[in-house]
Amino acid sequence: MAYSDKVLDHFKNPKNVGTLDKSKNTVGTGLVGAPECGDVMRLQIEVDPSSNTIVDAKFKTFGCGSAIASSSLATEWLKGKSINEALTIDNMDIVEELALPPVKIHCSVLAEDAIKAAIRDYQVKNGIEVTAEASSH
């Protein structure tokens, strides 16, 4: 299967690979997927509580090219966004941006789930009302 140039670029030069200190209260971690399914994404955000803005985002992904590209793109989009803005990221935005073929749409779903899981973790940790809905997929 031929991937789009954008997928290839994210795959070859993934943005924001790494690990944030998950013990910090300002960090939210989302771990979604399962090794048996062939993809696991861990997406982390660091939030500035005073402005409720995501100041840093990191990921690590076990998966195919589109899974890696989807999570790399998600971290790029998250940086600088408020929590509320981040919650509006839809998996179809990722599909469109990366021109993912239908068989790879689940990779974008996983990325959206990872964003929501990370925000939820941050909110639960800080006793904030949870606005990140549990995965609807």
Binding site: V32, G33, I68, H106
Partner: peptide, 24 residues
């Protein structure tokens, strides 16, 4: 493996079979 969260967990000594995964 540098990109893989489960490799990192494995290297940190986490038993992956004890992790609750969100099957999708």
């Amino acid at each position: 493996r540098d990109l893989s969260p489960i490799w990192e967990m494995y290297k940190d000594g986490i038993d992956l079979s004890t992790v609750t995964w969100s099957e999708h």
